[in-house]
Amino acid sequence: MPTLNTIQTKQKFYQFIMYLLIFLFSSSCAFRSSGDLHLYDSYFPHETGLIPIPKGKVRATFLGTASILLDDGETQILTDGFFTRPSLWKTAFSKIESDPVTIQSVIEKAKIDHLKAIFVCHSHYDHVMDSPFVAKQTKAKLYGSSSTLNVGLGAGLSNEQMVLFQPGTPIVIGKFTITVLESKHTPPFRILGKTNATDPNHPNIDSPLAGPVKATDYIEGGTFDFLIQHGKNKILIKSSTNFVEGAFDKIHADVLFLGIAQLSLQPILFQEQFYKETIQTLKPKLLIPIHWDNFFKPLSVPLEPNLKLGDDFDGNLKFILKRTSEEKIQVQLLQGFETIDLF
C-alpha cells in the first residue's frame, strides 16, 4: 500500500507535469505568428522591380522592419538598412553583430548600386545595427542622431561619411529633398521581464559602439520621421507607432509609410488619436504599413508577421483597414524585396 510520502511525491510530480505542459502550450502560442498573410494577399503587389524605373517615377523596395529603399533611377535613399536580423534566441541570450555576408547579399539582390544616403530613424539595433556597414559597402553617407553616429564610429566610419541630424532643415540629395522631423518611439513594452523603455539617466549611446554587443546596448537616442519630396510629390516615413500632437498639421503626404507595430495593444483612445494625428491629418493617397514583420527571421525567406509574444498583426491591420476603407485611402502591403512605383 502506497505511503503518504509516496502519494505526495506523485502529486507533486503530476503538478509539475501539468505546469510544464501549460508553460509549453503558452510558449508555443506566444511564439506563433500574430497574423495570417494569406488573408491579406490582395493587398500585396507581387512585384520585384525587374523592369527599369520609368522616367520621373520613384520606386520603393521594402527590405523588412523600417528599411525602405527609394530609387528614382538616378539616386537611391535608404532608411535604416537592418539586414542581419539575428534570431530571437541569439538576440535574447547572446551578443549580436552585423553579418557582412548577409548585408552584401541583400545589397546585391535589392540592386543597391547608386545609394547616396542612409537615414536612421532611431538607434535600437533593429534600425541602426547594419547601417554603418551598408554605408561602408556603398560609400553612402550615414545621417542620424548622435547615438547613430556613435554606432557608425564603432564600426569604423569616418566623420566625413556621417552627418548629424538637423531637424527641420531640408537636405537635397539628387532630386530628393529630405526633412528630418522629431518624433516619438512606440510606447514602452515589457516582454519576459525586460522593457525597451529608455533609461532617463542614460538616454543616448554616448561613446563609439562596436559589436558584438548586447541588443540592449543599442539605446533609442531619439526617434525621427522623414518627409521626402520628389518633384511635386511627398512621402512621409514614420517607423514608430506614436505621434507628436500637431506635428503634421501643416504637412500633406501623397504616400505614407506607417509603422503599425503594437498598435492594437494600445488603449483605444491612443489608437484613435494615432490615426487622427497621422493618416487623417496627412491625407495620403497611398498607405503602406511597415515594421509589422518578425525581424528574428531572415530576409531570405518570406516575411511573417510579428510574434504573438509582443504584437497582434491582425488587430493592427484590421483597425487600419476599417478606418482607411471609410475614407477611401488605398492600403498596400509589401513583402521582402517587393517593389512599388509610388508616383
Rank of each mutant, 00 (worst) to 15 (best):
P2T: 11
I7G: 11
T9M: 14
Y14P: 04
I17D: 00
L20G: 11
I22D: 06
S26P: 10
S28H: 08
S28Q: 07
F31D: 02
S33N: 15
L37D: 07
H38A: 13
H38E: 15
D41C: 09
F44V: 07
P52D: 12
K57N: 12
V58W: 03
V58N: 05
T61E: 03
G64Q: 12
D71W: 01
Q76V: 01
D80V: 06
T84H: 02
S87Q: 02
K90G: 13
K95S: 06
K95I: 04
K95Q: 14
I96K: 07
V101T: 10
T102D: 09
Q104C: 09
S105A: 08
V106T: 13
A110I: 14
K116H: 04
A117K: 08
A117P: 10
F119Q: 10
C121N: 13
S123C: 12
H124R: 15
D126L: 07
D126G: 07
V128A: 10
V128Q: 07
D130E: 08
A135I: 09
T138N: 11
K139W: 04
L142P: 08
Y143P: 00
S147T: 15
T148Y: 04
N150R: 04
N150I: 11
L157C: 00
Q161I: 09
M162S: 10
Q166I: 03
P170G: 10
P170D: 04
F176C: 01
T177V: 08
I178N: 06
I178R: 01
K184D: 00
T186D: 06
P188F: 02
I191Y: 11
I191S: 05
N196D: 15
P200M: 02
P200C: 06
N204K: 14
L209S: 06
A210N: 09
G211T: 13
A215T: 12
T216D: 05
I219K: 10
E220Q: 14
Q229W: 05
H230P: 09
I235G: 04
L236G: 06
L236V: 12
S239H: 11
G246E: 00
F248M: 09
D249L: 13
I251A: 01
H252T: 14
L256R: 05
L258P: 05
L258W: 01
L265A: 10
P267I: 13
E272G: 03
E272V: 07
F274M: 02
F274A: 00
Y275V: 05
I279H: 07
T281R: 05
K283N: 07
K297A: 11
K297G: 03
V301M: 14
P302R: 11
P302E: 09
L307D: 02
D311R: 05
D311F: 05
D311S: 09
F313W: 08
E326L: 14
E326S: 13
K328I: 06
I329L: 09
